[in-house]
């Protein structure tokens, strides 16, 4: 079950505050990295919601991310619609696509679930790639950034846009945590733990899985709108299976099913990518090695490992027995 522990609160606050602080020291490039980290934080949180807590390992989150980016881009650049409307529209589009994928895949599990989500994702990718009206493989430029001048903010300023992205990442975390703490979120964990028993208890499991996927889709699309605004450009590359895979790598790197872990993983990933790519062109290989290490060393992820160590400082040794059994055993030993 998800619990917003003190460790989680401290970590997420420190992480986001650290990112915000860093924008003050970093140059333009550093701020761009922070913006990238911020939307990857949101994407990773959205994926962890279904994968870590719902047991639904999705390989179409890159596509949902792309749907968010493209809906935002098309509305602002082609139809001149205000980003203030395009942003919620993109989120709704992500939720609808998520609901659809979730409903169709809810009957499958394991490898079949993963493959079906991959197929959905690639269908979207190929559609966008081949569609000249959407710019095809050239993508679309002229994407607008949201206008927050009425709040006294200038989104053209990379530092302020970075803050905006960090605030959205924080909001995404709060939303995901609220969902997971609710009756709905607990039920989601129950489905991951034992889907058959949930059904036997009377739960319409497929509906719950579809709704969880819709919520996750909304968040993934939100991440996409930030990416589209950052470069003011969208291309099919941001929605292929590589993107979905990267999101999954981030989640595992940070700690699947910990919510804060994937956020940490996103920042770690961007940091690794940046630092290591300065040393070698083969930075993917280094990420790969780190990933293998994470999996081999207990499969908890960077944050997950730390959380595990904090929570399990004292472990009970003997299996706990109910009073009745203890009585039974006593009786037997007296007999």
């Amino acid at each position: 079950m998800f619990q917003q522990t003190r460790t989680k609160t401290i970590t997420i606050v420190l992480l986001l505050a650290g990112m915000a602080l860093y924008t003050g020291f970093a140059g333009f490039y550093g701020r761009e990295l922070i913006i990238e980290a911020a939307y990857l934080v949101i994407l990773a949180i959205s994926l962890d919601l279904v994968a870590g807590y719902g047991g639904m390992i999705s390989l179409c989150h890159g596509a949902i991310f792309g749907i968010g980016a493209y809906v935002f881009a098309v509305l602002t650049s082609m139809y001149d619609i205000s980003p203030l409307i395009a942003l919620p529209a993109a989120i709704v589009a992500g939720a609808i696509f998520g609901l659809f994928v979730g409903a169709v895949t809810s009957k499958t599990s394991g490898i079949f679930f993963i493959m079906t989500t991959l197929a959905f994702g690639q269908m979207v990718y190929v559609y966008v790639f081949e569609n000249r009206a959407l710019g095809g493989d050239d993508g679309l430029s002229g994407v607008e950034r949201i206008d927050l001048s009425w709040l006294g903010l200038d989104m053209g300023n990379s530092m302020q846009f970075a803050w905006f992205s960090i605030v959205l990442a924080g909001l995404a975390y709060v939303v995901a945590a609220a969902v997971l703490r609710s009756g709905f979120g607990r039920t989601l964990v129950g489905i991951r733990s034992n889907e058959g028993r949930m059904r036997a208890l009377g739960l319409p499991v497929r509906r719950y899985k579809a709704v969880a996927f819709a919520i996750s889709g909304a968040l993934a699309a939100l991440a996409g709108t930030i990416a589209a605004q950052q470069t003011m450009f969208v291309s099919p590359q941001m929605m292929g299976w590589m993107m979905s895979g990267e999101a999954l790598v981030i989640v595992i790197l940070g700690g699947l099913g910990t919510l804060v872990g994937p956020a940490v993983g996103a920042v770690l990933f961007v940091f690794l990518q940046h630092e290591v790519s300065e040393l070698t062109r083969y930075w993917h290989m280094i990420v790969g090695i780190v990933l293998i290490l994470v999996v081999v060393l207990g499969n908890r992820g960077a944050y997950g490992q730390i959380e595990h160590m904090i929570m399990h400082r004292r472990r009970p040794v003997a299996p706990a027995k109910s009073s009745l059994e203890a009585a039974s055993e006593q009786e037997e030993s007296h007999a």
Partner: peptide, 24 residues
């Protein structure tokens, strides 16, 4: 999950609390 969580899941499913936003 804990025994409490096990029972909470069953009760929440039966009472409809499973779909609510409140903490069970």
């Amino acid at each position: 999950l804990t025994i409490r969580d096990n029972l909470a899941l069953a009760i929440a499913t039966a009472t409809g609390a499973a779909s609510r936003m409140g903490d069970t």
